[in-house]
């Protein structure tokens, strides 16, 4: 390069990137966008927060009636209402975060094309907003657990790990999809269908030990990272007598599969987003 000596004082302008060189700035920006978005949802309609909580609760009510009263499929599962509600809240977080993230970069086109800022803040903020919502919904779950007689126990210490796993997965998928969506608009309908498949392929409506075909159970546990999470949540948080993820998968070593999958999705998402970030503004 023919660098001239007289511009050494200046800072090179290298264009947009995913995170930028200023990590605190990235976090502050992500947090600010997320909180404002949450505020908008919260105060956006008359009943605000009520709707945020009602959605999973209504789904819960319908499924609960169908599975315990109409079909009696889950009648002998201990703590079924709590398991069902927890599953719905966890899945709602995942679907909310990833489903909103897909179009998020395009939704904020006006700022992407006109302001220089770390691009990753957009999908990351979507996940944080979903997380704030998730926190509120968890309070309802806690009330439910108390009412159903779930007692605090040592398994609760696993909570941060489980939530961390869920966040890593959601953020990884969000980065991947939002970056791809800029180029391939088919991602949105595809992901909508995928979410449906993941919903039925996860032990939300049912508990996994009721799945009697071994290979289907194994497939679910090894391919769908949400499945072992839900199994472990049931074991560690709600009912220690229920089988753990390791037990269902046939040994703790098998846990490496979903953990590896989540780590892989996160790494791929970060890689793809970082690669696309410099060009996002022009590809929109």
């Amino acid at each position: 390069m023919t660098a001239l000596p007289h511009h050494t004082a200046g800072r090179p302008v290298i264009g947009p990137s995913a995170i930028g060189s200023d990590l605190p700035r990235f976090f502050v920006l992500t947090w600010t966008i997320a909180v404002l978005e949450f505020k908008l949802r919260f105060f956006g309609s008359v009943l605000g927060y009520v709707w945020q909580v009602m959605r999973p609760l209504l789904l819960f009510g319908v499924i609960y009636l169908v599975f315990t009263q109409a079909f009696k499929l889950a009648a002998d599962v201990a703590f079924y209402p709590v398991i069902l509600l927890t599953g719905i809240v966890i899945f709602t977080f995942f679907a909310d975060a990833t489903g909103t993230a897909v179009t998020s970069v395009l939704d904020r086109e006006n700022i992407v094309r006109k302001i220089h800022f770390p691009r990753l803040a957009i999908p990351a903020a979507v996940v944080v907003t979903a997380l704030l919502n998730f926190g509120l919904n968890l309070m309802v779950v806690l009330i439910f657990m108390a009412a159903s007689g779930v007692k605090p126990h040592w398994g609760w210490l696993e909570m941060p790990l489980l939530v961390g796993y869920l966040i890593t997965l959601s953020l990884g998928v969000s980065m991947l999809l939002s970056a791809w969506y800029v180029r391939y608009r088919d991602i949105k309908p595809i992901w909508d269908v995928m979410l449906q498949i993941i919903f039925y392929g996860s032990p939300v409506l049912y508990v996994l030990d009721k799945v009697e075909v071994e290979w289907i159970k194994s497939l679910m546990l090894h391919l769908n990272p949400l499945a072992p999470l839900l199994v472990q949540v049931r074991h560690a948080i709600i009912d220690p007598n229920a089988p753990s993820a390791a037990a269902e998968m046939g040994g703790a070593i098998h846990l490496l599969v979903p953990i590896g999958l989540v780590a892989g999705i996160f790494a791929l998402g970060l890689y793809v987003f970082a690669r696309e970030a410099p060009r996002i503004a022009e590809d929109l």
């Binding site: 302008v13 290298i14 947009p16 006109k114 220089h116 503004a281």
Partner: peptide, 23 residues
């Protein structure tokens, strides 16, 4: 304007700006 403001990335060449920039 957009490459100066860091909104687009240059294919070739360099830009140096000394000081705080506002676009």
């Amino acid at each position: 304007l957009k490459v100066l403001g860091g909104i687009y990335r240059l294919d070739r060449g360099t830009i140096h700006i000394d000081g705080r920039l506002s676009t």
